[in-house]
Design a protein around this nucleic acid. Structure first.
Length: 738
DNA sequence: CTCCTTTGTCTTTTT
DNA sequence: GACAAAGGAG
């Protein structure tokens, strides 16, 4: 009996095939992580491969951590020598050692999206770009696309030399790169690009890593882009032991430059590649798989596969259509409540949606029902103002070359250094070819700026003191020092609002993370901390120990599984998104369908699909049809909740019931559970009485005729001047007394 | 220089 | 509808 006996035949084949290129087409839930971990174990224990000769690349830090842990359980000895990490952190590790060969300093900083945007703003200013014509986001997207395809600014220029619309973009790309370099910074895409450049120009470095990584494995291969492909194929070229695992049906990151051809054409690039399909699913019921299979069949660009399981049919998929988006949220909350009352756990439930904006309604509803929840994604912890401010201080202390960071905090908290002074310092820096911080330190520069000079001086002194201290103290203490000396915390405390309290809590959270880092890291350093912080995704913070419902986008849910899944907002225009419907490229819809496939296959036991006829999007009401994807699921797999109705008469009634009333009822019901801490207008005691003049948002002004206490809510009858008598629920009508 | 109001953009998804 | 950026008043 060996550890490999638990694998099925196909999985075994994948594990035992260790030499040469291997493509594993692993359907959702087919145990690909098991295969990967067992393969690592097999390499070490049966093939005598040294652990440090193995590299495994995953998509998220979380996946990397999980894989490490599972390998550890299988192998035990030496597993910490295996290089298990994401593309980005692998590259950072390599670049920290060798990037000086490309003329950067080894302690470079990593720019996130916000930093990129500010830098691009700077570029626009310097190039006199009309912000009415060009958008930072748009230009950055084009640059990112170029980088993902490994196109340098020069190449990009010559590719587009006859395209006048691209002329500005070309200039921006060039200057953007120059500024990044002078700030000693790399953006996310650069991490890959620079590593590949490093390999191309330094044979010795490439040889070193080729020798080191004799066996390479890549997870989520369908989401790799061209640079990433270059990166791994360069590394694997000599030993050719490249094993990639992926599912073309789960390729959902085209917008980020993922090249689905990497997986579809793997066999034509590596002609001797062995291909293995894993189609047995160990996660979901057959009903769920059937739904997923039937839907994904509608895609043209895919390698045919059909998932199956021996788990049995299981329950049908519930489908619920409601009138208003609010009701959908209530429905989900009630359903979760029932689920938990059956003795099950919150943490087994997940609410998935297409866009982050949808989380709000769900959040409010879950709150009312006292259901613990956690939102993944949205505004990333590290994107919050206070966190970015503190980190900018740390960056400035660590590396005064990052102009963005310095400019961000030179007047935070306010110390009387306005934009005029900042501009002057920048000007001085530019003309003398030095960094912003060095300019601020320069006596001669300060002469130009008059009154604020002393203030700039004291800022510089502050940083210098922190720098000196940094030599002796830990990261945690440095953060404490920063928040203390600058008066950052004091200012927030003085504010004493809910918001400022939350900010302080966030800063404390950052301190916890720093302590965490301090204990975990082999050689803790300020630089190391900043680096780790730059590469974490929100999904990495999911804690399997605590019991809460998880809310996230379908994108974030990739690679996860939950016994009970709610798929919300299944409406045409939302999912599939309006963008993909109106696109002239039919492949855009296919990408959405794959996304939907990912969503459905997250579910293990039960899946609930819901949609609303009416919903507010971007401040305007939208009326959407049920998603076309739902229609692609065979009816017999769906439980619409209609069956129990005995007579067709009854059926008809529930459909034609006035929408306002039913929606009001749901909202009232939801309020019955409302714990005290939430600010919702109390139902007892209306601000108006019979005979009062009131105003309704839609019907205009009118006179209250009667108010009837209907138990949970008041039923108000109003005679409106323009539209006549209307009956409505008080909590829903939101009448204002005049 | 700071604070307040107005205006505009966003919403598709993220390492 | 929410939030950031820009513009104007003090």
């Amino acid at each position: 009996m060996s550890i490999y006996d638990t694998l099925n035949d196909m999985q075994k084949e994948a594990v035992f095939h260790t030499e040469g290129p291997l493509l594993i087409l692993a359907g959702a839930g087919s145990g690909k992580t098991r295969v990967l971990t067992h393969r690592v174990a097999y390499l070490i224990e049966e093939k005598g491969v040294q652990p440090w000769n193995i590299m495994a690349i995953t998509f998220t830090n979380k996946a990397a951590g999980e894989m490490k842990e599972r390998v550890q359980n299988l192998v035990g000895f030496g597993s910490d020598q295996i290089w298990v990490s994401t593309f980005h952190s692998s590259c950072v590790r390599i670049l920290r050692r060798y990037i000086d060969r490309l003329g950067y300093e080894n302690h470079f900083t990593i720019y996130d999206t916000d930093d990129q945007k500010s830098l691009m703003k700077d570029v626009f200013k310097r190039l006199n770009v009309d912000t009415k014509v060009y958008k930072e986001r748009n230009i950055l997207a084009q640059i990112s696309k170029a980088k993902n395809d490994f196109i340098s600014p020069e190449q990009f220029a010559s590719d587009n030399q006859f395209d006048f619309t691209k002329k500005k973009v070309v200039e921006c790309y060039k200057l953007y790169q120059e500024l990044l370099k002078s700030n000693n910074a790399l953006d996310f895409d650069d991490l890959l690009v620079k590593t590949v450049e490093l390999f191309q120009n330094n044979q010795d470095v490439l040889d070193y890593y080729r020798e080191r990584f004799k066996y390479i494995m890549v997870d989520e291969y369908q989401d790799t882009n061209t640079v990433q492909f270059k990166f791994i194929s360069m590394l694997a070229e000599e030993h050719r032991n490249l094993c990639v695992v992926g599912d073309d049906d789960q390729s959902i990151y085209k917008f980020r430059g993922a090249n689905i051809k990497n997986i579809l054409n793997f066999e034509s690039v590596f002609t001797d590649a062995h291909v293995i399909k894993l189609e047995q699913n160990y996660r979901s019921t057959q009903s769920i798989l059937n739904a997923a299979n039937e839907m994904i069949k509608n895609n043209t660009e895919r390698k045919a596969k059909t998932l199956w399981t021996d788990r049995g049919d299981g329950e049908k998929i519930t489908f619920k259509m409601v009138d208003f988006a609010q009701q959908e949220a209530v429905y989900v909350a009630e359903s979760i409540k029932k689920y938990v009352e059956e003795g099950k756990n919150y943490k087994d439930c997940a609410c998935l949606y297409r866009t982050n904006a949808q989380s709000r309604l769900l959040e409010e509803s879950l709150m009312r029902y006292n259901i613990p929840y956690k939102i993944v994604g949205g505004v990333n912890f590290y994107q919050r103002k206070e966190i970015k401010d503190i980190l900018a201080y740390l960056k400035t202390v660590n590396n005064g070359v990052d102009d963005l960071a310095v400019r961000r905090i030179i007047n935070v908290p306010k110390r009387g250094i306005g934009s005029a002074s900042i501009d002057k310092i920048q000007e001085y820096a530019d003309t003398n070819g030095i960094s912003f911080y060095d300019a601020a330190r320069d006596e001669r520069c300060l002469e130009h700026i008059g009154r604020s000079a002393s203030k700039v001086k004291s800022f510089v002194d502050l940083i210098q003191v922190l720098r000196t201290k940094n030599e002796f103290i830990k990261v945690v203490e440095l953060i404490d020092e920063v928040t203390e000396v600058t008066g950052y915390i004091r200012e927030l405390e003085a504010d004493n609002t809910d918001e400022s309290k939350e900010r302080i809590a966030n800063i404390e959270e950052l301190l916890t993370k720093a302590v965490d880092y301090q204990m975990k890291a082999e050689e803790p350093s300020l630089n190391g901390f900043l680096e780790e912080v730059a590469l974490v995704a929100d999904i990495d913070s999911l804690d399997p120990e605590s019991d809460y419902v998880v809310l996230m986008t379908v994108h974030s849910s990739k690679g996860l599984e939950f016994p009970n899944v709610y798929l919300c907002g299944m409406e045409d225009g939302l999912f599939p998104s309006y963008m993909s419907i109106s696109s002239d490229d039919p492949l855009d819809i296919e990408e959405e369908r794959r996304l939907c496939y990912v969503a459905i296959t997250r579910a293990m036991d039960t899946l609930h699909i819901s949609c609303a006829k009416q919903r507010m999007v971007r401040g305007e009401t939208q009326y959407n049809k049920m998603s076309r994807f739902v229609k692609e699921i065979p009816m017999e797999l769906l439980d619409t909740g209609m069956k129990k109705a005995q007579s067709p008469e009854k059926e008809k009634r529930r459909i034609t019931r006035p929408t306002q009333a039913s929606s009001a009822r749901d909202i009232i019901n939801s309020k019955a559970f409302e714990p005290r801490q939430f600010k919702v207008t109390k139902l007892t005691g209306l601000e108006y009485a019979e005979g009062d003049r009131v105003k309704h948002i839609k019907f205009g002004e009118g006179t209250v005729v009667t108010i009837v206490n209907g138990g949970r809510d008041f039923e108000v009858t109003v005679n409106f001047d323009k539209v006549g008598v209307k009956k409505m629920f008080a909590s829903f009508a939101k009448l204002k007394k005049l």
